[in-house]
Computed example of a mutant assay.
Amino acid sequence: MRRANPKSSGGTLRIVAGSLRGSRLEVPDLDGLRPTPDRVRETLFNWLAPVIAGARCLDLYAGTGALGIEALSRGAGECVFIERDRALCVRLQDNLARLRVANARVVNADACGFLAAAPAAAFDLTFLDPPFGADLWAASAQALEQGGWLRPGAFIYLEAPKDAAPPLPANWAVHREGHAGAVRYALYHRLA
Rank of each mutant, 00 (worst) to 15 (best):
N46Y: 01
V80D: 06
D59Q: 10
Q146C: 12
N5L: 12
A143W: 09
A186F: 02
A182I: 01
R86T: 14
P169R: 08
V101G: 13
E78F: 13
W172V: 08
V174I: 10
I69C: 03
R176D: 01
Y188F: 15
P152R: 10
F114R: 09
A62E: 05
L150C: 14
R3L: 14
A118L: 15
I82P: 02
E159K: 03
A97Y: 02
C79L: 14
R84E: 07
L136P: 12
G65Y: 07
A49G: 04
G18V: 11
A154M: 10
R176L: 01
S23L: 02
D163N: 07
L150I: 01
E26S: 12
V174G: 00
I82H: 07
A102H: 11
Y157G: 11
T43V: 07
P37N: 11
Q142P: 02
Y188G: 00
G65F: 02
A66S: 15
A170M: 07
E177H: 12
T12I: 11
A121K: 15
C112Y: 12
D38N: 08
S9L: 03
L99N: 13
E70P: 00
D135Y: 05
E42A: 05
L13W: 04
A97C: 13
I69R: 02
H189C: 14
P50S: 06
